[in-house]
Simulated assay, not measured.
Amino acid sequence: MNEYREIIKDLIQLNLLTKKSGEEIINEIALNLYNDENNHLTQKDVFYKLPVVIRDIILVINLDTELNMQGILGFLENSTGLFLGDTIDTLQRIQAKEDYEILKAINSILEQNNVSTQDLRNNVDNQMEYSITSFSETHSSKYDAMVLEISEVADKLYLYDGDRNLFDYLIQYVDINKNDLVGELNS
């Protein structure tokens, strides 16, 4: 069994991969991604060993999950935010142009304020476990203007625009790249 197969064996049934549509592949990964046996997949030393199509699926699922649960600020300060640059690259690969530009703009706002998602994550990690605080309490009120700017830009994301669905782009991308993924997993 090759390295890929061992890493993702609990994520998707590889023997059925060739028979599944892009949507079915994404759905199966979404169903299994947050199971305990797959926690290792977002550890950077494991994540970058995954085939790029699998990484892209994971990044879009994580982005969508965080945006739905905690909004853009939750995404940025959570462990998923540590993959902001990769998520931006993914949006470009799947041709989600509007959301690619929006996340690039948000990243630019962070850079202009000399803030990294790692800084945000460190602040969250320094909080008492299970404490409930606002973004301003966790990170400092000096970021209030930055937060307002990020929020205004984020209001244009697919989640708030009924005319586009990020998963439509992802499904099309997976359908186009499925054979390459299968080849990579069988090499």
Rank of each mutant, 00 (worst) to 15 (best):
L159I: 08
G162V: 14
K142M: 15
A154F: 00
Q112D: 15
S140F: 04
S108P: 02
N165F: 00
S134G: 11
A154I: 07
S140Y: 04
A105M: 04
E111C: 11
R164K: 09
A154C: 04
Y130Q: 07
E98H: 06
L166A: 05
S140A: 09
Y100T: 10
H139W: 00
D155I: 06
A105K: 03
I109Y: 12
Y158Q: 01
N126D: 13
A145G: 13
K142L: 15
F135P: 00
L166S: 06
L159T: 06
E152W: 03
I132V: 07
E137V: 00
A96H: 10
L120T: 09
E149W: 12
R164Y: 06
N114F: 12
G162E: 11
L110R: 03
N113Y: 15
V147Q: 14
N123T: 08
L103N: 05
E137T: 02
N114Q: 15
L120W: 00
A105Y: 00
Q95F: 13
I106L: 01
Q112C: 11
R121I: 11
S116M: 06
R164M: 06
I150N: 04
D161F: 05
R121E: 10
E98F: 01
S136M: 08
S141T: 15
I132F: 00
V124K: 10
V153T: 11
E129I: 03
E152D: 12
I102Q: 03
D119P: 03
V147P: 01
N114R: 14
E111N: 13
D163Y: 02
E149L: 14
T133Q: 07
N114L: 12
A154R: 00
V124L: 12
N113C: 14
K97V: 14
Q127S: 09
L166F: 01
K142D: 15
E137Y: 00
E98A: 13
R121Q: 11
M146P: 07
A96T: 12
E149H: 15
S136E: 15
L103V: 03
S141G: 10
S141M: 11
G162C: 10
A105C: 06
Q112H: 09
E149T: 15
D155E: 06
E149Y: 11
M146T: 13
E129W: 03
Y143R: 09
V153F: 02
I94M: 10
Q118D: 09
H139Q: 05
E129G: 02
F135G: 06
A154Q: 00
L148R: 14
N114Y: 12
S141W: 10
S151V: 08
D144M: 14
G162N: 14
Y100F: 09
S116N: 08
I94S: 12
N113K: 13
F135Y: 05
E98G: 06
V115I: 15
N122L: 14
N113T: 13
K156D: 13
S134L: 09
Y143V: 03
K104W: 01
K97D: 15
E98S: 10
N123M: 08
N113M: 12
Y100V: 07
Q112W: 04
Y160Q: 03
S140I: 08
I102T: 07
M128W: 02
N165H: 04
I150H: 04
S140D: 12
I109E: 15
K97H: 10
I94Q: 13
S108H: 09
V147K: 14
E111K: 13
M146S: 07
